[in-house]
């Protein structure tokens, strides 16, 4: 009797899980295995893949200047974007965490851009605002600051204009912080106030430590997302000027679908996986030093 109940449960569980499981095998597991295999081959889609061992990886690290360029650009982008976006989101969340009129309206304004993330229309707008003859240049001109090249046209600043696009979309991180701040027990702040702690020290001694699990979790997710960025560099700058915005995934895409170098781009994809895994591992390692868990469990939300 008991055994048949367990059998029924297993059958039912897997029946319910079947669609996701099918997708997992078809869309994740098989492609990942195929991708790993292809990364050791020379494959141009016309003839059968030819096994070449670690040649793709050796070529990537040893000879391919564009690979190193793309890696550098992507690191710059990740480091310019992620800390700034998190800090900005936290600052605005603190600003909005009060009891005043109009908060819902402000929240709407700030959140709206982040639902448009990845939208190509937004990239088109960015190209016009930061491009030559665009809004920013015109504005600076009228203020008496004359520039020869636009922010997007300048190889030194182009990648930062793309980072700005990401920072502009800080809204969902802000909402996550806002809900985490609201979950901090008010009694903590009240007793600190009675002890004479000022707003500043209450922020650094109470609010910030209580938010570290949320910051930790969002840091990881956003780093992963930033490494995957593609649309911005493809639409706004097409990797230029002088490859200064050649994002890793853009270069991977070109290798695969402009040069049909499928083996090489598969190898690039796996190097990206390893980079992301390393970053995640390092951040996990450091968490004992700065992430404060009130009790075990909970990654910034209560269940």
């Amino acid at each position: 009797m008991k055994k048949s109940l367990r059998g029924y449960r297993n059958g039912l569980g897997y029946l319910m899980l079947a669609p996701w499981l099918a997708g997992f095998v078809l869309m994740y597991l098989l492609p990942m295995i195929a991708s790993l295999f292809l990364s050791f081959t020379n494959f141009n889609m016309l003839s059968a893949p030819k096994f070449i061992g670690f040649d793709n990886y050796a070529r990537m690290f040893g000879q391919d200047k564009s690979f190193w360029k793309a890696l550098g650009v992507t690191f710059t982008y990740v480091f310019a974007l992620v800390p700034a976006r998190l800090a900005f989101a936290l600052a605005v969340a603190m600003l909005l965490n009060s009891k005043r009129k109009g908060l819902a309206l402000y929240r709407t304004f700030y959140y709206m851009p982040s639902i448009l993330s990845g939208s190509i229309a937004v990239s088109i707008v960015w190209k016009q605002i930061f491009g030559s003859g665009g809004v920013l240049m015109t504005l600076l001109n009228q203020l008496g600051i004359h520039q020869k090249i636009s922010m997007l046209g300048n190889p030194d600043t182009a990648v930062y204009s793309l980072a700005l696009l990401g920072i502009w979309q800080f809204g969902s991180s802000m909402l996550i912080f806002l809900s985490a701040i609201k979950q901090i027990p008010a009694s903590l702040h009240e007793s600190a106030k009675i002890d004479g702690a000022r707003a500043g020290s209450r922020f650094f001694k109470i609010t910030l430590p209580m938010l570290t699990p949320t910051i930790f979790f969002n840091l990881i997710l956003q780093i992963i997302n930033a490494f995957r960025a593609f649309t911005e560099s493809y639409v706004v700058t097409d990797g230029g000027p002088l490859d200064s915005t050649l994002f890793y995934v853009l270069y991977l895409y070109r290798r695969a679908f402009n040069y049909f170098d499928m083996g090489y781009s598969s190898a690039m994809a796996w190097v990206l996986v390893i980079i992301i895994a390393l970053f995640t591992a390092v951040i996990f390692k450091t968490q004992n030093n700065w992430v404060y868990y009130e009790s075990k469990g909970g990654i910034g939300h209560d269940s």
Binding site: L38, F227, A256, S265, A269, L272
Partner: peptide, 8 residues
Amino acid sequence: PGQVMVVP
């Protein structure tokens, strides 16, 4: 990253 899967 979705890009790993896209070629296969």
